[in-house]
Design a protein around this nucleic acid. Sequence first.
DNA 1: CGACTTGTATCAAGGCCTTGGTGCAAGGGT
DNA 2: ACCCTTGCACCAAGGCCTTGATACAAGTCG
Lengths: 128, 128
Amino acid sequence: MTTEPLITVDSDQPVPPYVQIRDQIADLVSTGSLTAGTRLPPVRQLAADLGLATGTVARAYQELEATGHLETRRGGGTRVAPHHGKRRADVLRQHAEDFATTMRRLGVTHDEALAAVSTAFTTALPRR
Amino acid sequence: MTTEPLITVDSDQPVPPYVQIRDQIADLVSTGSLTAGTRLPPVRQLAADLGLATGTVARAYQELEATGHLETRRGGGTRVAPHHGKRRADVLRQHAEDFATTMRRLGVTHDEALAAVSTAFTTALPRR
DNA sequence: CGACTTGTATCAAGGCCTTGGTGCAAGGGT
DNA sequence: ACCCTTGCACCAAGGCCTTGATACAAGTCG
């Protein structure tokens, strides 16, 4: 058997393929599973592997470049962008702010929110 | 001029009207702005006020009943459900778990996450 | 410098979701 | 018991988003 496929797409899921690809790669980059400079398969190859059109994969790559996850050069391929350290911090802060905003909207206090997160962290069982 | 409209819909926004209605009411209930037993306008009236079809408002009410925010009785109107205290706790826990899951996925530590939330809470400026 | 690799642009086709409008059913209030 | 209020179901119309396929442009590498 070949190497485990980097990306998989489940057509049963309601979320469109290009989003699945985008989010999966974003995760791999954010978690460090894909290090800076790592080259990704060309759009045609990945599209062929997944049974999709090139434009679909291209859209995923494109949005990932816009968010700073990837860097692309025509003829040179697509690679993981170098500054993902700083980006992770931004992503973390963004998530924290969204969470805080939601909590305030619900009328949850600072301490209450922290306690909930702490509990969730220890309890946290992956539910996927 | 009449009383401040409880709900408003902005057709320019990309999010569909029924979602806008649903989320706004959900917020009002969660924050306690609408207390248990408070009666909401009939679907026809709210629809007329907003320039929408009855079915659109009905859908919002329906989903809110499914999530436990509201209770509806034909002929009796739609009212805020009584147990929103317990519900708020559930919602809080759910958000906390989602946040924790995301943080783990990003490889963020327990302490790091708590610090980020704490910071976000003090910084948090409403962004609407 | 030239052929090849790779991402990009474009446009039509298809599907999914949302909305309007109308008629119906259930329950409330007098 | 009756009439009225109110939510619900249904169905067709319209719009937005996504996809496929193909042709094109821009770099790369020998």
